[in-house]
Simulated assay, not measured.
Amino acid sequence: MTLDLCSDPIELTRALVDIPSPSHHEEEIADAVEAALAALPVEVFRYGNTVCARTNFGRKSRIILAGHLDTVPLADNVPSRTLDGVMHGCGTVDMKSGLAVYLHAFAQLAGREDIKHDLTVIAYEAEEVADEYNGLRHLQQDHPEWLRGDLALLGEPSGAIIEAGCQGTIRLRVTARGTRAHSGRAWLGDNAAHRLAPVISNIANYRPRDAVDIDGLSYREGLNIVHLESGVATNTIPDEAWLFVNFRFAPDRSLEDAMAHVREVVGQHHGVDIEVDDACSAAKPGLSQPGAAALIQAVGGQVRPKFGWTDVARFSEMGTPAVNFGPGDPGYAHKKDEQVPLEQITQVSKALIAYLTT
């Protein structure tokens, strides 16, 4: 498929949605984006199925526009359809509408030598799967120069207002081991599920912080058991029990501090082991940076904290302030009836162009 990056962002969204691109199957859409960017007077770089482009006018500041190409698995919701001013389809909100807006803005401005900032656009693969496959992660590790800038915008759905920073996340696997036995002779066994009882109690009684002020935004935290498993048969004492506990922490904690805190809450218990299954840093909002302040002004001053983790954290780790700014309600992400209002695509596009040119 041939993409026209200068077409209306609504039409560009539709074109992107109609190219199926579930995670690990982004080659077709990456080819189309790369070909469209190669037609512009810019530097283009491809790494796997991650496609990057940038202007090099020597401006004093650089703005990065980033969004992922992949979606969750299709659910009979491609091609797209539009009904009553709303576009439906896999990827409409997460996040091909945001990516379309960013690609459109980049294409519109890339050839203008009077632009205020140099621009970088990054369309990356494998955001919806395990972090080890994330295209932005690999770019950060192997080609970090593409992530350096004065402000980064990520087109994740945010209701057409700025969601600044993001929570960090830690997921621990807590495993208890005992001895299997017939439940009629339970004294011959050691119930692994019972060994998890103090862990479950500690987490259930934990009271997370619910008002952490950073740059005038109030972040919340949460510590929850999100998966729990044990059992062999209805007449058998289980010899293993395990759970996942997920800690979502505010950006004032470093990853190391957050890890120490959640381990302290879980506690140390005989016969219970703890493994780190996943751990990602939080991102501070960085709203005091001049570039962020100008963006807030361009969108009418509306800004709120981001609850959840996004790739803005990667930019934050490198010292680049980053915010989430895209059309649509994130509550529709990953759903069969995924959708985005057309008016929000237009709204975000106009605000972004105004910010980049004013």
Rank of each mutant, 00 (worst) to 15 (best):
A176N: 04
A181N: 02
E256T: 12
A204K: 03
Y206T: 06
E264G: 07
N235W: 00
N224T: 09
L188D: 13
P238A: 04
F244I: 11
A258Q: 14
A233T: 02
H182R: 00
T236H: 00
A211R: 11
V226E: 02
H182D: 00
F244V: 10
V245Q: 08
A258Y: 13
V212A: 04
F247Y: 14
M259F: 10
R253F: 09
E229S: 15
L196G: 05
N235Q: 02
F249W: 06
S230P: 10
A192I: 10
T236E: 00
Y206G: 06
R207Y: 11
R195W: 09
E264H: 07
T175A: 02
V199E: 01
E240R: 14
N205Q: 09
A176Q: 04
T234G: 14
R185A: 14
F247G: 06
G231F: 09
R209S: 08
V174P: 12
V212P: 02
W187R: 10
T175Q: 03
R253T: 05
S183V: 13
N205V: 02
N235D: 02
R177F: 10
T175N: 01
L217P: 03
A197V: 13
A204M: 02
G178R: 00
D252P: 07
R185K: 13
G222I: 15
G178F: 01
L196K: 04
E264W: 05
R220G: 07
N205T: 06
L223H: 14
V245A: 10
Y206L: 06
H182S: 00
G216W: 07
